[in-house]
């Protein structure tokens, strides 16, 4: 499957979804005005990938800022991963800075809403 690689912009995150490299990472800043427009193709990619996934998919979230509009799309992304996880092995690595309570809180919220394994990593 073709990898999905997007460079970070001032308000959207870097996306590296590359099954060949076994890398699935979303990082930096996510504060776009239109989060749906940005995340729709990413969620679609995950759904396509789910048709023929690796045995083990570990998705890293290493975000600095997330606006509420992005949170709404991220939960959809996580729910797509939850679907994938029904018959495959899926884990989420949620990175947060020690002083960033809000990011930690958001990760916990997602963990409660999506039935996937979460690993919290303080950086």
């Amino acid at each position: 499957m073709e990898p999905l690689i997007l460079q970070a912009t001032e308000d959207t995150p870097e996306i590296v979804f590359d099954p060949d490299q076994n890398t699935f990472k979303i990082s930096k800043i996510s504060v776009p005005e239109d989060a749906y427009e940005f995340y729709y193709p990413i969620i679609q990619w995950i759904k396509d990938y789910s048709k023929n996934p690796l045995d083990q998919t570990s998705v890293e979230f290493d975000l600095e800022y997330v606006n509420s509009a992005s949170a709404k799309q991220l939960i959809q992304l996580l729910l797509a991963l939850e679907d994938l996880g029904r018959e495959n092995n899926v884990t989420i690595k949620w990175y947060y800075e020690a002083i960033d309570e809000d990011m930690q809180m958001l990760g916990k919220r997602f963990k409660n809403l999506a039935d996937i394994d979460f690993e919290f990593i303080e950086i």
Partner: peptide
């Protein structure tokens, strides 16, 4: 609201 599917496509979350 986070899980509300009706407003998923809207800019107004």
């Amino acid at each position: 609201i986070l899980l509300d599917l009706d407003s998923v496509t809207s800019k107004k979350s």
